[in-house]
């Protein structure tokens, strides 16, 4: 079953726990700049938006990699990065539209989210559910329900009827 990390920026409080636990899990140290997921804060409106690899179907990073270190696994839904093949040319980091690929200057390689082998740590520790790990097939249905809730609220308000 293909699962994806669903991000809801409205729920993100900018706490950065995802950065702490990701870098600690993947690198054994706390360092937000080495976290695969990073939160971008937009001052002064106090808006926080988590950014992580979108595991694109038609990934620009796969297309640009000269040594085939990036590839897509159909069943896991993940874009896989092979560290052994990686030559650190950084083309993928440059071409990613989300800036979701990081550069590790000491290891001389890039790094990206690998969904922690199916149980993403960031999702586990996110207290507000700004990050959720959901099945790709049900994702749009969830969003539909969320989207129409605005209409059902409107209906309730105008007619006094419950939308149930």
């Amino acid at each position: 079953m293909e699962k994806v990390i669903l991000i809801d920026p409205e729920k993100c409080t900018g706490c950065r726990i995802c950065e702490i636990v990701c870098s600690l899990t993947k690198e054994g140290v706390i360092n937000p700049t080495r976290s695969r997921i990073q939160v971008v804060k937009v001052d002064p409106v106090s808006l926080s938006i988590p950014v992580v690899c979108q595991q694109c179907y038609d990934a620009p990073c796969i297309a640009v990699c000269p040594v085939g270190a990036l590839s897509r696994h159909g069943t896991t839904g993940m874009v896989n990065h092979d560290r052994d093949l990686c030559i650190g040319c950084k083309s993928c980091a440059a071409v990613c539209p989300f800036g979701a690929i990081g550069i590790d200057t000491s290891a001389e390689k890039v790094f990206k989210c690998d969904l922690c082998g199916g149980e993403p740590t960031c999702v586990k520790f996110c207290e507000t559910k700004a990050l959720e790990f959901v099945e790709a097939s049900t994702l749009s249905l969830r969003q539909k329900r969320k989207g129409i809730s605005k209409y059902t609220e409107l209906l309730q308000r105008d007619t006094g009827q419950s939308a149930a």
Partner: peptide, 8 residues
């Protein structure tokens, strides 16, 4: 707001 926690 949807960011707040609720539940029993």
């Amino acid at each position: 707001m949807s960011s707040v926690k609720s539940g029993p």
